[in-house]
């Protein structure tokens, strides 16, 4: 008897359509669809794709929690032994959907899940702790390389075989620490490493301390008088009552709000959702965090052309680097689409 596998793909890979079909509602079909064929071949006799779940990227991204539950319930009916997600390559929303599905399946069904993504896909940072994500090239041209590696990993997991290091198996490091017994005492390993470091020989630390990457600065704004400037904050400023329920810490979402018609933010209309500092001052006058009042003045004076009519907000408090990255990327996409030229980001 072979293992039963369900495959999850987006509307594009299902052949339904591109961006114009991205709001495609979740559905599930018997058997293989699209890249499932190659995957099924790679799985050989040991496992078989019994069904393919399909969902549009925009549909999924609009309400991730709701979409994940819907797709999960469809998958559950097929009683699978494992689920394969994507590969999503460098497609951000697709990757996030695969990640969210993997997380939900691992938690709810407790069965093996494997996905495939390009390391810079935001879905990686967000969900790499929840599942094995095979490293793929950045576009579908890498399908031929991605699928066999994903199939191999999946079979290993299905058979309960011991999985190796990221470099051996080709998955993206999950950031999970696993204990093991080494050949030597920790003291001996430490002195060995010390000797290597003293001699300038290569060594591998057993615990890499967190590191931070850098981005090259962009060119400055040359014509401020004709520029549209947007304001973004991690200080949690939102319309009074926090209509989208942005969490006070470890925020799982960001807010997008219009400031059309506002010359000044006051305690009557705005507040902070942030739980990471004493909110009294920001609640009394939200301009102290998001300077709408002076930005409007300067807009009127013609210092710059336009204050972007929407502001973006989230709570930087205890929010995972992965989430912050995801919010940043999504906000940047929208700002660019709206023709914004420069951004002022305020933090508490």
């Amino acid at each position: 008897m072979s293992y039963r596998v369900v495959h999850y793909i987006n509307q594009f890979f299902a052949g339904i359509g591109g961006e114009e079909k991205a709001d495609h509602k979740p559905e599930i079909r018997e058997g293989v669809v699209g890249p499932g064929m190659a995957l099924n071949n790679a799985l050989g006799d040991e496992a078989e794709i019994v069904a393919t779940a399909i969902c549009g990227d925009t549909y999924f991204a609009t309400d991730i929690e709701k979409a994940a539950v819907e797709v999960l319930e469809m998958i559950r009916k097929y009683n699978p032994d494992a689920v394969v997600l994507g590969p999503a390559f460098n497609a951000g929303r697709y990757g996030s959907a695969c990640g969210a599905m993997g997380d939900a399946i691992a938690t709810e069904l407790g069965i093996p899940v494997v996905s495939g993504m390009y390391p810079e896909n935001p879905g990686v940072e967000m969900y790499r702790k929840s599942m094995y994500i095979i490293e793929t090239p950045d576009s579908a041209r890498g399908m031929g390389k991605a699928v066999p590696a994903m199939a191999k990993m999946l079979l290993k997991l299905l058979k309960g075989e011991k999985t190796g290091l990221p470099s051996e198996e080709g998955y993206i490091e999950r950031g999970i620490r696993i204990n093991k017994f080494y050949e030597k005492l920790a003291a001996e390993r430490c002195v060995d490493m010390f000797v290597s470091k003293l001699k300038g020989e290569p060594f591998v630390t057993e615990y890499p301390m967190p590191v931070f990457d850098r981005v090259e600065p962009n060119l400055p704004v040359t014509d401020m008088k004709n520029a549209t400037v947007a304001i973004v904050t991690s200080g949690g400023i939102c319309p009074k009552g926090n209509p989208d329920h942005i969490e006070a810490s470890s925020a799982s979402k960001y807010g997008e709000y219009s400031i059309e018609g506002y010359d000044d933010l006051t305690s009557a209309d705005h507040c902070t959702a942030h739980g990471g500092y004493d909110a009294t001052y920001a609640d009394d006058d939200p301009d102290r965090v998001l300077p709408v009042d002076v930005m409007r003045e300067m807009e009127k004076e013609g210092v710059f052309k336009k204050l972007h009519n929407k502001f973006y907000t989230t709570v930087g408090n205890g929010t995972a680097v992965a989430s912050a990255k995801k919010f940043g990327a999504a906000i940047a996409d929208k700002l660019k689409a709206d023709g914004v030229d420069a951004v002022i980001l305020t933090s508490t």
Partner: peptide, 9 residues
Amino acid sequence: KEIERAGLP
């Protein structure tokens, strides 16, 4: 960093 990465100053 992500906003910068996207090409917006």
